[in-house]
Computed example of a mutant assay.
Amino acid sequence: MDSPHGAAVKAEDFGLKGPRGWAFRGIGLDAAPGSLIAVEGPSGSGRTCLLLALTGRMKPTEGHAEVGRHRLPKKMAAVRRIAALGPVPGVNDLDQSLTVAEQLREGALLQRHYGAPIRSLFRSRAERRATATARIEAALDAAGLDLATLPKGERTTVRDLERLESVRLSVAIALLGSPQLLALDDLDIKLSDTERTEVWALLRSIAARGTTVLAVCSEAPADAVVLRTGPTADDGAPDPEPAGGAAGTPKVTWGTRAEDGAGTGAGAGQDADAKAEAEPAAKADAEPDVKKASGTKTAGPKETAGPKKDSGPKKDADTGAEDGAESGPGTDAGTTDNDDTKGADDALAEAGRA
């Protein structure tokens, strides 16, 4: 398999805002081709959104980024062509009902139809099959997955794979298209410390071959270019301070922007969203008797202390009598016909007794 020169990844004041607030904001990055980039942070801090935005799958709201020679957000389609996704739960999950061989052939078929040059379509069937087989073998070798070690070899179903084997299979499928950028999400979920060490060793070997690697994790290795998402300190800087990369590795520049005097680093959108959701609830608790219907407010409980100021009865200029006095004090224009009928029945009863 060819080893393309990886894509440089740069970002400046990069941010994405969704319906519930900022997923991440103020991200700065300058990573050379072939770098190992780790997005570190707690779950729910916008890590996956940042990964998808840097690979052209989500459109950022502010700032810009460059992947290779392509600038985001204008060249999202071009970035998608050179950036492949490894395991990203909920986005490109493996089909649990397929065997490993079927999953690999499906990946090779999709890559041939959507990623291969047009001239490859004019090759003979035997030549196309041989090319696909060679790509699969090279991808498996790069991902460190030996089919002979699986319980049923290539006929092992995906659901029977261990977590580490599943990660290697997803990486192998992603490498079929010889991407310049490989992205992986939730790298250390359901992995032991030993397996996590093996995965990072795998990603280092892929980066050493020239492919830039972007991985989301809860704890980044010391030799990676680190991006941190999550709550920020009072001065707007990430807390704790990002760790520097290895010698010769570009370091991350993290930026945050203030809005209305408050720090708004990655993860701040969730706090703002929670506050926005809490305000209507608090208002509803403070005014339990106010109901909304079709954009208007209806009157609350009727008062018996006296007539209303706005809709109360008016006095006649000559006699001083009040219009609608039969309604009595404390009633409004919304008196129903049932009340009038009841009053008439009471009057008839009084007349009968007289």
Results as ranks from 00 to 15, higher is better:
Ser192Gln: 06
Asp193Pro: 12
Asp193Asn: 03
Thr194Met: 05
Thr194Lys: 04
Glu195Met: 01
Arg196Ile: 00
Thr197Ile: 10
Glu198Ile: 01
Trp200Leu: 04
Ala201Gln: 13
Ala201Ser: 15
Leu203Gln: 04
Leu203Met: 15
Arg204Thr: 02
Ser205Val: 00
Ser205Ile: 00
Ile206Ser: 11
Ala207Tyr: 01
Ala207Thr: 00
Ala207Phe: 00
Arg209Cys: 07
Thr211Ala: 04
Val213Pro: 11
Val213Gln: 10
Ala215Trp: 01
Ala215Gly: 02
Val216Ile: 13
Val216Gln: 06
Cys217Leu: 11
Ser218Leu: 11
Glu219Asp: 10
Glu219Ser: 11
Ala220Asn: 08
Pro221Gly: 05
Ala224Gly: 14
Val225Thr: 14
Val225Phe: 01
Val226Trp: 03
Leu227Tyr: 09
Leu227Thr: 02
Arg228Trp: 04
Arg228Tyr: 06
Arg228Thr: 11
Arg228Gln: 13
Gly230Ile: 10
Gly230Val: 12
Gly230Glu: 08
Pro231Glu: 05
Thr232Glu: 08
Thr232Asn: 08
Ala233Gln: 07
Ala233Ile: 02
Ala233Cys: 07
Ala233His: 10
Asp234Phe: 13
Asp234Leu: 05
Asp235Tyr: 14
Gly236Pro: 08
Gly236His: 10
Ala237Val: 03
Ala237His: 12
Pro238Arg: 04
Pro238Asp: 02
Asp239Gln: 03
Asp239Asn: 09
Asp239Ala: 09
Asp239Trp: 11
Pro240Val: 03
Glu241Asn: 00
Pro242Trp: 06
Pro242Val: 13
Pro242Cys: 04
Gly244Arg: 12
Gly244Phe: 09
Gly244Met: 06
Gly245Lys: 00
Gly245Asp: 01
Ala246Gly: 14
Ala247Trp: 10
Ala247His: 07
Thr249Gln: 15
Pro250Asp: 01
Lys251Glu: 14
Lys251Thr: 12
Trp254Ser: 08
Trp254Phe: 11
Gly255Met: 13
Gly255Gln: 12
Thr256Trp: 09
Thr256Lys: 01
Arg257Thr: 14
Ala258Asn: 04
Ala262Leu: 13
Ala262Gln: 12
Ala262Glu: 12
Gly263Ile: 15
Gly263His: 14
Gly263Ser: 13
Thr264Met: 15
Thr264Pro: 05
Gly265Leu: 05
Gly265His: 10
Ala266Ile: 09
Ala266Thr: 13
Ala266Tyr: 10
Ala266Lys: 05
Gly267Asp: 06
Ala268Lys: 05
Ala268Val: 07
Gly269His: 12
Gly269Ser: 07
Gly269Val: 09
Gly269Gln: 06
Gln270Pro: 04
Gln270Trp: 13
Gln270Ile: 15
Asp271Cys: 03
Ala272Phe: 09
